[in-house]
Amino acid sequence: MQLHGWEAVIFYVLAIGTLFMGVYVVTARLAVHSALCLIATLVNVALLFILLRSEFVAGVQILVYVGGVMVLFLFVIMLVQTRAEEEDKVKLYTRQMWPAVTVAFLLAISFFFAMQPAQMAYRPSQSQTEAEKKGDDPGVRSESGAGLKVSTDTESVGEALYRQAALPFEIASLLLLVAIVGAVLLARGSKQEKLYE
């Protein structure tokens, strides 16, 4: 797998954006800014997914993460908003910040070293090169209607999701149900409970 041309450029743009935004998520003073940057990160990751020809996952990422989870985050941030943070009165980091950053840095370095054998061994494969030469990916089919190439990602992911991973799918739905009930129970105050009774 090797990205060429504009895709390579886009990859670098997205990767740098992702990392910067990710760092800003961690360092922002205000939780809302943090959330905003996390949204940017998530959108960047979704675009990377598209680069990887996983449009469906990208769509789900945007729909669920950006449209759902992040709205939830913003809700909660606004519910528990404390003015102290905005007025620079609050310590942002715990006492172990510097040890934590050090350990994280060491971990990053060690990961790079751990990938060294893979880097040594990596060469673009023969079939890939040929496929790229032919101009079409195995995962892409041409559609007559618009004359453009359209990925079949959605169909194949759907097949896999509903045929091979049907049981995990059901379990995941059950998990979601439990999470909904749990979240409602947790977030519901005694006042609301009285209201309902």
Binding site: A100, V103, A104, L106, L107, S110, F111, F113, A114, Q116, P117
Partner: peptide
Amino acid sequence: FTFGLFIIVFLYERTVI
């Protein structure tokens, strides 16, 4: 926990380093 993870990775890759 993370530090332990680092130790493991480090031990694993020492020859590579």
